[in-house]
Amino acid sequence: MARIYLGTAGIPLSSKGKSTADGIRRVRELGLNAMEVEFVRGVKMGLEKAAELKKVAEEENVRLSVHAPYFINLCSEEKDKAEASKNRILETASRAEAMGADAIAIHVAFYKKGDREKCMEIVKSSMGEIIDRAEESNIKTVKFGIETMAKETAIGTIDEVIEISKDVGKRVIPYIDWAHTFARQNANINYGEIIDRLSKELSMSHINSHFEGLAERKGKFVDVHRSIKYNTPPFEPLAKEILKREISITLICESPELENDALIMKKILENDGYRLE
């Protein structure tokens, strides 16, 4: 039987308190069991605070993950920006480790036309260095998730994230954004095929993922998030593919509707016979 962790990207909109701890408690009140802590504008949390969140999450039985800052480009032509990107990833990982989060989501790099292969090699080398530095800093358990991306100038196709994981090692994992992949593949996605690839090619024991709807511009889906109610992409087929398999997966709702859409996702799972723990 599948084991599913479902929750919000950040503090639920309905949370009366606006601290991360308040958000974790609100997630549990809503009957959800996961939350992604958002560092997208920068890592502004100390290690002590992160350790406090670990206790709250354990008390509430909420699985945590973390999103690294958007300001990361390991393939920047400016060396100081590439180095700053590595440091931001490590800062994120140290807080994630302290709070007991299982993985961090990273937008790793952008490449110029014709430079994809070179950028892939830079990303692999940089992630290897980051893992070495993490272990030297006693960051031992958190996984480094390479997120699938919608933009065609970004590293982040399914093939790319699997290749990076294979070449760098098991601490680097694909972090699947289902909607981004749907857009990147021209509004075409086979959920079951992706899940099976992760299982067979990487022997992943747990899949970290995002889900949201995307807007359409000039006949093409773009990285502008909207409610899952638009079915771009549809959630129900993903739910069915998950429930066919004995897998463990986190589904983080990144739509602007946050918990409202997460609760729709929960209802779809319940209609298919699944109950969140």
Rank of each mutant, 00 (worst) to 15 (best):
D261K: 02
Y111P: 00
I207K: 03
R63W: 00
F235L: 13
S199E: 10
A187D: 12
I139M: 12
K151V: 02
A82L: 15
W178L: 02
G10F: 02
I4G: 01
M204H: 01
V172Y: 07
G213C: 08
L243I: 07
N33S: 14
N87L: 12
A150I: 13
T148H: 02
L6W: 07
E241N: 10
A68L: 13
G17S: 09
A239Y: 03
L276F: 01
I146M: 10
F211L: 07
E91R: 04
E257C: 01
E259I: 03
G7H: 08
A21S: 15
H206S: 04
L32F: 00
I24H: 05
A109M: 08
I195Q: 00
V123A: 02
N33G: 10
E136Q: 14
A57C: 11
A239D: 07
I89H: 05
I252L: 00
V161A: 07
E152S: 11
I131P: 01
R133I: 14
E129R: 10
E52G: 04
N33V: 14
E29M: 05
D132Q: 13
R245M: 07
V27A: 00
S14Q: 10
E91T: 02
P256N: 12
L64E: 11
K44A: 09
N138C: 15
T92R: 01
I207V: 08
E38S: 14
E121A: 15
K112E: 15
S255D: 08
S94V: 10
A98H: 14
R116F: 02
R25P: 06
I162E: 08
I264Q: 11
E78F: 13
D132K: 12
M99A: 08
F71M: 13
L202Y: 00
G213N: 06
A21M: 11
K220D: 14
L64A: 07
L74A: 09
R116T: 02
S137G: 10
K220C: 07
S199N: 02
K229R: 12
K112L: 14
K218W: 06
M1S: 13
R171Y: 15
K267L: 07
G192I: 06
E129H: 05
K79D: 15
D115H: 08
A105D: 03
K16A: 10
E38P: 06
D223I: 03
S19E: 10
V222W: 09
V222N: 13
S125I: 09
M1W: 11
E201L: 03
D196Q: 04
I264T: 12
E36Q: 10
N73G: 06
T157N: 10
A187M: 14
D80A: 15
A103R: 05
Y274H: 03
K79V: 12
E77H: 14
G114W: 15
D132A: 12
L30I: 04
Y191A: 00
A50C: 05
